[in-house]
Amino acid sequence: MITTVLLLLLSALVYVFWSSDPMVEVVRLHLNNIRIHTLPIINVDLSLYVTLKVRNLDVYSMDFTSLDVVVKYRGKRLGHVRSDHGHIRALGSSYVDAEIDLRGINVLSDVVSLLEDLGRGTVPFDIVTEVSGKLGLLFFEFPLKAKLSCEVLVNTHSQTIARQTCYPEVSRHCCLR
């Protein structure tokens, strides 16, 4: 009987203190403007405003050392923005705003696709978000990483997200042993 209780207690402690990756979610993506230049070469200016929600599911605080957001169009990296550091309390969440201002993006290889997408009124983007940080428990710190990939279809007329499909990418980090 005592062995069973101790085993259950040990299992509960492992479950509670086992570190898990933070959850990252794109809450809002707003297309500020998109401008196509044809002279002297074809390129694009793109301005996006992204709001991310980072949730800490653990019973101890989390400090993220970096949050990196990469924007891609049809597999081609357009640019990225990086946020430095932040703190998220235990079982809490935090919102991180990022403004991505890309100027003079060379899309010569994708210009036909881009013009077709603009003609339809929707442009597909891939947004990859990566969070790196540490979980703090008493005097111990444990590294963590989370990565979220989103396929986002932006309506250029209403400047809103028409469809968004996100999926976390599995990562391995150091755990409590």
Score class of each variant (00 low, 15 high):
residue 157 H to T: 14
residue 23 M to N: 12
residue 90 A to K: 05
residue 67 L to G: 04
residue 118 L to P: 04
residue 121 G to V: 10
residue 145 K to V: 12
residue 90 A to C: 00
residue 95 Y to D: 10
residue 24 V to Q: 05
residue 35 R to S: 11
residue 129 T to S: 13
residue 126 D to G: 10
residue 99 E to I: 02
residue 129 T to H: 01
residue 114 L to H: 07
residue 125 F to W: 09
residue 88 I to H: 00
residue 24 V to R: 04
residue 122 T to K: 12
residue 110 D to I: 01
residue 156 T to K: 06
residue 89 R to C: 03
residue 40 P to A: 02
residue 83 S to D: 05
residue 139 F to L: 13
residue 107 V to R: 04
residue 79 G to P: 00
residue 45 D to G: 10
residue 56 N to W: 11
residue 80 H to C: 03
residue 71 V to L: 09
residue 95 Y to G: 06
residue 45 D to F: 00
residue 131 V to M: 07
residue 50 V to F: 14
residue 35 R to G: 00
residue 98 A to S: 11
residue 72 K to W: 15
residue 34 I to K: 04
residue 63 D to T: 13
residue 13 L to T: 08
residue 145 K to R: 15
residue 118 L to R: 08
residue 48 L to C: 07
residue 134 K to M: 13
residue 105 I to L: 15
residue 45 D to P: 05
residue 35 R to N: 13
residue 85 H to C: 04
residue 126 D to I: 08
residue 33 N to R: 10
residue 39 L to P: 00
residue 57 L to F: 11
residue 121 G to R: 11
residue 134 K to P: 00
residue 59 V to S: 14
residue 124 P to K: 03
residue 56 N to K: 08
residue 71 V to I: 13
residue 60 Y to I: 10
residue 68 D to H: 11
residue 149 S to A: 15
residue 60 Y to P: 00
residue 75 G to K: 02
residue 159 Q to T: 09
residue 150 C to M: 08
residue 150 C to Q: 09
residue 58 D to E: 15
residue 149 S to H: 14
residue 95 Y to F: 12
residue 44 V to P: 01
